[in-house]
Design a protein around this nucleic acid. Sequence first.
DNA 1: ACTAACTCTATCATGTTGATAGACTTTTAA
DNA 2: TTAAAAGTCTATCAACATGATAGAGTTAGT
Lengths: 152, 152
Amino acid sequence: MKLSKKSDYALRAMIYLSANYQKGAVQIKEISAKEKIPQKFLENILLTLRKVGILNSKMGLRGGYELARSPDLITLGQVIRALDGAIAPVDCVSQMSYKPCSEEVTCVIRSVMMEIRNAIADVLDKMTFADMCKRAADSLEKSERKALTYTI
Amino acid sequence: MKLSKKSDYALRAMIYLSANYQKGAVQIKEISAKEKIPQKFLENILLTLRKVGILNSKMGLRGGYELARSPDLITLGQVIRALDGAIAPVDCVSQMSYKPCSEEVTCVIRSVMMEIRNAIADVLDKMTFADMCKRAADSLEKSERKALTYTI
DNA sequence: ACTAACTCTATCATGTTGATAGACTTTTAA
DNA sequence: TTAAAAGTCTATCAACATGATAGAGTTAGT
């Protein structure tokens, strides 16, 4: 039950790219520096996201990466699945890498794991990067207001 | 986001022990055979569960393992935490192995992971092994009725 | 005392994770 | 037209986790 560093980095990079959606291509180097992600590691991550069609890239001087579509059309689930694979805790309840278990029909562990899978998917597949940016703005504002209150 | 084989085996063994709760100590060998779990591997698992107080053991001839308390007082969460550790997808939202992340207050990834942790915990900490036995009985009955229907 | 059972520690092969290296290709702008 | 800046691709690595096995102990019922 663990989010890999890879997916964590990917989410951070995606939030960064979402916040800069209108500004055109952003370079790996910039994301790497701002989000403190090892550059070479980030290269692989972004490459993967490009291959699944979440990002577009421009090669050459002044190249970079940008979202392939609007942030409200990309969910956390899409990104995590691209990097970590299936979200389900066991394969027999996975949409992505389904493998039947021996006693499918009566297996009670399976039924509980299905509940968990659905609960996770419910969060990750509904949450878009537009939502994430909004949340970030909200919580920043809130913490600034708080800081202001304290300094009075 | 993956349940380890260890936890999976543990859950199966616990369900088996719950179903045999009134019958006194059950031997590793029996559980291993019935649930098709490598015996030596199972030894380690049961030992761990004993150390955290979920199981009691009797040594010597006619020894074995049994639940330390009634099945309705043991949750799946307790067992999985004993074997796999924290349930939370990232440490900064974990009750069990909490480690602060740098930007705790404003981190939006954290807030989403907290939602997921809570959703998972909500399932695992409410579901007891008594519930599991009931489910098993229900689904067995259902599949038998179904089989009957088919054979008419 | 014999034996069936749990206890404990060590070991092992395999795979995954997080990270790095370097050679290659594409594009732009001077 | 060429140098520099950017992405592309493949290989490699150390460290760790996982799933499993081995074997020498210890305990207790008969």
